[in-house]
């Protein structure tokens, strides 16, 4: 048990070397900046579940602690991300999505609505409705109905 404890501490230490309290480094202000930093821990690229702004991996926590400390020192958001870019290279920066992000899906939805309206107009023939009953292509108007009326009625009686 004794050994278990020490090795546990050893393993856990890597992820937990920090002096700030947890609530401080998961505050909204810290998250706002952390969103612009991509996680560099490596394993995240595999499972894609690492949330930089609230994650617990070996990169996220120290990075957020660093952000918190920089904020305490009065640095602006830009200063902080610039600092990360100096340290890890420009690739670490994640920009905000442009307006294209939501314009394209909603634009497509609008186009879709137009297509549906076009479709409805194209196939909507209220006046022709009685004549278009010829479902299978045969000429079948009221006389055809008259011809098969008996059989249809007979079958209908069996429906329930």
């Amino acid at each position: 048990m004794r050994r278990g404890k020490s090795s546990f501490l050893l393993l856990a230490a890597a992820a937990l070397c920090l002096a700030q309290t947890e609530s401080q480094i998961t505050s909204d202000e810290v998250r706002r900046v952390a969103r612009h930093v991509s996680c560099q821990c490596g394993s995240c690229s595999e499972d894609a579940n690492c949330m930089m702004s609230s994650g617990q991996c070996g990169f996220c926590k120290p990075a957020r602690t660093k952000i918190f400390k920089m904020q305490q020192a009065g640095m602006s958001d830009k200063d902080i991300t610039d600092d990360f870019m100096r340290e890890y290279g420009p690739k670490i920066y994640r920009a905000d999505p442009s307006a294209l992000g939501w314009m394209v899906p909603y634009g497509t939805l609008m186009i879709g609505v137009l297509v549906v309206i076009w479709f409805v107009r194209r196939y909507y023939h209220p006046a022709a409705a009685p004549a278009q009953a010829a479902a299978a292509g045969a000429a079948a108007g009221d006389d055809a109905l008259g011809k098969y009326k008996d059989q249809i009625e007979q079958d209908l009686a069996h429906l329930d």
Partner: peptide
């Protein structure tokens, strides 16, 4: 050539 951050909140709004 710039990474962007699309978080769950963005998707939710969409």
């Amino acid at each position: 050539n710039e990474k962007i951050s699309l978080d769950a909140a963005w998707f939710n709004r969409l």
